[in-house]
């Protein structure tokens, strides 16, 4: 673990205040160093997207944030928009899932990128456009100078997503937060875009927070992983540790239910039930109703994150009693 984290999140809590108070994210902590990729993994309702947006100060109205978000030493919880405005697009940038939602349909891709450059740097129109073309070239758009004159609707889905990544990275930010940037794309294009993010990371020392529901994507690209369930920390640590020797039953269940390469049975180990939603959480551990290892104590109070091995944390009451291969917990479950 690096001594100086670029982004340090401690005890993050996000509360929806309307129509009544609900904690959407509760006591989540993580950090990201320069050049590192953290994958935030979870299913719908896990609070991963809202966590990503909270880091950037981009939460919708009616949400209250507490805890601490420190970016390069500066506390951002409670910071004014003026503080954020100095960071947005310049030092931290956002890549959403739906590229069309951030691209204007009435301006060319090149003009939009150039505007992003000029909003941060005092350069002329021509210099900004040159920088925009460079950024498009960097994300692998062929014939970038010509393509910069095209409109978003003339781009394919994969190219639009590249254009959005180009826009996010055009000012060489220190941190990029990407919310499911490849979910809507075909697997071959997904692989290319994630490879490209890796290259940018290596070349410019950019840190990336990647929000995804796909464990395989996390395994292939991230350095560290944070698994969330119902707005809570489930497990976190170096990606090869967490995914090779998962300690939390939820992580183990996700891994066990992936189609195996060598299967004796045509049936996959499956978790019963559906992901818990923060509006109606059970008492105690949110995963307990679906957990094959749940005991009475699990329904009484919420588990706290505990360190299993250096840097590998898991939130589970039964951490010490679980089998060595936690994926075995799900063998024979075909719900």
């Amino acid at each position: 673990m690096s001594t100086e984290a670029l982004l340090e999140v401690r005890g993050l809590r996000i509360t929806a205040t309307r129509p009544h108070e609900v904690d959407l994210v509760c006591d989540v902590s993580f950090e990201v160093a320069a050049g590192e990729m953290l994958a935030v993994v979870g299913e719908s309702g896990a609070g991963k997207s809202i966590t990503a947006r909270a880091v950037l100060g981009l939460l919708p109205a009616g949400m209250r944030v507490s805890g601490s978000v420190r970016f390069d030493g500066e506390e951002l919880v409670g910071a004014s928009d003026a503080v954020y405005r100095k960071l947005w697009g310049h030092r931290m940038a956002f890549v959403p899932q739906d590229a069309l939602s951030v691209l204007s349909p009435v301006h060319t891709v090149g003009d939009q990128l150039a505007l992003a450059v000029r909003s941060v740097r005092g350069v002329g129109r021509k210099a900004a456009l040159e920088r925009a073309v460079d950024a498009l070239d960097r994300v692998g758009i062929a014939d970038a100078a010509r393509r910069a004159r095209a409109y978003p609707h003339e781009f394919s889905g994969g190219m639009r997503q590249r254009a959005v990544i180009a826009m996010a990275t055009v000012n060489d930010p220190d941190l990029v937060v990407a919310d499911e940037p490849t979910t809507a794309l075909d697997p071959t294009i997904q692989a290319r875009i994630l490879d490209m993010l890796d290259t940018l990371r290596e070349r410019a020392g950019m840190a990336v927070v990647l929000v995804t529901h796909d464990l395989a994507v996390a395994a292939a690209h991230a350095d560290r992983v944070l698994v969330m369930y119902a707005g809570r920390h489930v497990e976190s640590g170096p990606v090869h540790r967490v995914l090779r020797e998962p300690r939390a039953p939820y992580t183990a269940g996700l891994l066990a239910s992936l189609p195996p390469r060598h299967a004796e049975s045509r049936y996959l180990p499956a978790m019963p039930g559906a992901p818990a939603t923060t509006g109606s959480l059970p008492a105690g551990c949110a995963f307990a109703p679906r957990c094959p290892a749940a005991a009475d104590s699990c329904t009484r109070h919420e588990p706290e994150p505990a360190e299993w091995q250096d840097g590998h944390w898991a939130s589970c009451h039964r951490l010490a009693e679980l089998p060595r291969r936690t994926t075995d917990l799900f063998v024979g479950t075909t719900a």
């Binding site: 299913e43 719908s44 529901h213 796909d214 464990l215 939820y250 269940g253 996700l254 239910s257 189609p259 045509r266 049936y267 996959l268 180990p269 499956a270 978790m271 019963p272 039930g273 559906a274 992901p275 679906r290 075909t334 719900a335």
Partner: peptide, 15 residues
Amino acid sequence: LDPSVRAGVINLFTE
């Protein structure tokens, strides 16, 4: 579908 419910539905088709 969410990853944790996918396997259950796949098993249903097999069944």
